[in-house]
Simulated scan of single mutants.
Amino acid sequence: MTQSASLHSLNPNTPHSQLTFANLSHMGLMSVTGEQGRTFMHGQVTTDISSLESHQWGWGAHCDPKGKMLASFRTFVVEDALFMMMPSDTLAVDLPQLAKYAVFSKVDLVDVTTDWIILGVAGEQAPTWIAEHFGEVNHPLTTISGGVLLKDEGRFIIIIKTASYEALTSSITQPIQDQSVWQALEIQAGYPNLAASHQGQFVPQMCNLQAINGISFKKGCYMGQETIARMKYRGGNKRALYILAGTSSQPLLVDSRLELALEDGFKKVGTIIEVVQSSEQVLLTAVLPNDTDNSSVLRVAGDENSTLHIQPLPYSLEDKD
C-alpha cells in the first residue's frame, strides 16, 4: 500500500529516512527495439547511445530542431531493448514526436509503462537492503530477476516486471511511500524532470543537463545539435536550474509563478520544473536567470507571505563531456 510522507521525513536524522521505499508511479517507460533502434535514437537525442554499455545508464534529452527540450530522460539497455524513463505525461506527448521520424527506420517505439513497476529505495540503510536482496551492486546498472536495478549515488531504482513485483514486495516490511518522497530526493539532486507542459521551452543547458552527463559534445549529429553546440562554444545561455526551498500557503503546481525580491518590490521570474509540498513546506526546482545570486529571496506570486531560498546545487555547472 502506498503512503504519503512529509518533507520533514526526508531529514537524514529521522528514523524513517534510514530506509525509504517509494512507488514511482509518475514515471513512464518507453522501449526502443528493432534492427536500427539504437542507431535511430542516437541521431535523435543528446546523449551517446552508441557507446552505452549494458552495465550503464545515463541522462539525456530529446529536442526539437531548434534545440528546445521535448523530454529529459534516463536511458539504459536491457538485452536487445533500449529503454527511456521519463515522467509519464511527458512520455505520452514525446513518443508521437519520435514516431514521426521513426517511420523511416527499422525501429519500434512502444510505451511499456504498464508492463513494469518502478520502485525507489533510499536512505542510509538502502545499500545494505539492496545487497541483502540482490547481492553486491558494483555498477550503475545491474540485471536482476525480472528486471534491472539502477544505482544513483546512494539511491536505487528497481524496475521490475509487473508479474515479479508481488514477490519483491513480500520482502518489504514497511509502508511504500508515494511518489512525492522520491521527487523530493530528485529535486535535492538537482535533476531536471521535465513536465509535458514545459515542452519546447528550454535548451538542455538551461536545465543543467551538461552537469549530469546528459549531453555529448563528441557524438555525431542529432536533433537540435547546432543550437546546443553553439550555446557551449559561443556562450549565450542566460538560464540555469536552481533548487529552492521555503514556505507557501498556496498549493503549488509547475505552472505556478515565482517572484524575485528587489529593493523596490518584486519581479516575476523563472519557471518551476518540479515541486513537492507538505502543508506549507515546499521544495522545488526552477529555471531562473543564471546570474541570480544564491542569497536572493523569492516568493510565490500571489502569496505575499511565502518565502523561498536558493539551496546549493550538488554538482558543478561545468560540462562533463
Rank of each mutant, 00 (worst) to 15 (best):
K106Y: 05
E226F: 12
Q250L: 15
L284T: 06
S248N: 02
L82P: 02
A81M: 04
P12W: 07
P96L: 04
G58A: 12
Q205H: 06
G270S: 09
E166R: 03
V110H: 03
K68W: 05
A167S: 13
S279H: 11
S51Q: 13
G265Q: 00
M231L: 15
T271E: 15
Y101R: 08
E124Q: 13
F104Q: 09
T285G: 11
I118P: 02
E53C: 06
M206E: 15
Y165C: 02
R155N: 12
D89A: 11
V107N: 04
I160E: 03
P192N: 09
S249R: 09
N11D: 14
K106A: 14
G34P: 04
I172A: 01
I160V: 14
E304G: 09
E318G: 04
V287D: 08
I158H: 06
P312N: 05
P192A: 15
G123N: 04
S4G: 10
M86P: 03
Y165N: 08
P140G: 04
N290Y: 00
G43P: 00
D152P: 04
S54M: 14
G235K: 00
D48F: 05
A240P: 08
N23Q: 11
H139N: 13
V269K: 11
T113S: 14
A71P: 12
D108S: 13
D255S: 15
Q183S: 11
M223Q: 14
S278H: 14
V282Y: 01
D178T: 13
Y191W: 13
T113Q: 06
E274H: 13
G123H: 03
D291K: 11
I243L: 13
S51W: 00
Q250I: 11
Y101C: 00
S25I: 05
A245V: 01
L150R: 01
F83K: 07
N138I: 00
S164C: 09
S88D: 09
K66R: 13
S279A: 14
L91T: 10
A102M: 07
K232Y: 02
L283Q: 07
E53A: 10
I117A: 01
L119V: 05
L95D: 09
A167T: 10
M27G: 00
I118C: 02
T227Q: 12
K219C: 06
L258T: 13
L317C: 07
T75Y: 07
I158C: 05
L98S: 04
L194D: 03
L194F: 07
